[in-house]
């Protein structure tokens, strides 16, 4: 294995670790907001690292640009859905308390 491949493999493993910790957070954290926090933060970083690993392994600019676009779209979707979930959670809480 070349140095580049080792580097790519390290990035993939690190990305997998972040995904794993995000999922553990999702399963173990007590309430909606902290679960959301765990999933969005850790998974987005994990996905970024994995895509970076794939880009390093592919060593191809067009491929890297496509992967970057995918990451951006995933970030957009994640932030939007996290926002909506949090909002609906807060509204539910407000209607319960009020």
């Amino acid at each position: 294995m070349s140095a580049l491949e080792v580097f790519a493999a390290l990035l993939l493993l690190l990305g997998g670790f972040f995904f794993l910790s995000g999922t553990v957070g999702l399963l173990r954290f007590p309430d909606t907001l902290s679960r959301l926090h765990a999933v969005t933060k850790a998974d987005n970083l994990g996905l970024g690292l994995i895509l970076l690993g794939v880009a390093v392994h592919g060593a191809n600019l067009v491929l890297a640009a496509k992967l970057l676009l995918i990451w951006m779209l995933a970030l957009l979707a994640a932030s939007f859905s996290a926002h909506l979930v949090a909002r609906s959670h807060l509204r539910d809480e407000a209607s319960r308390d009020g």
Binding site: L73, L76, S79, F80, H83, L84, R87, R91
Partner: peptide, 21 residues
């Protein structure tokens, strides 16, 4: 409609970014 009793600025931004894409 998911907006409920009011739009959030996020919705407009998302639709504006995603639709052409």
């Amino acid at each position: 409609w998911i907006g409920g009793e009011g739009d959030t600025p996020m919705v407009g931004a998302l639709v504006g970014l995603l639709s052409p894409l």
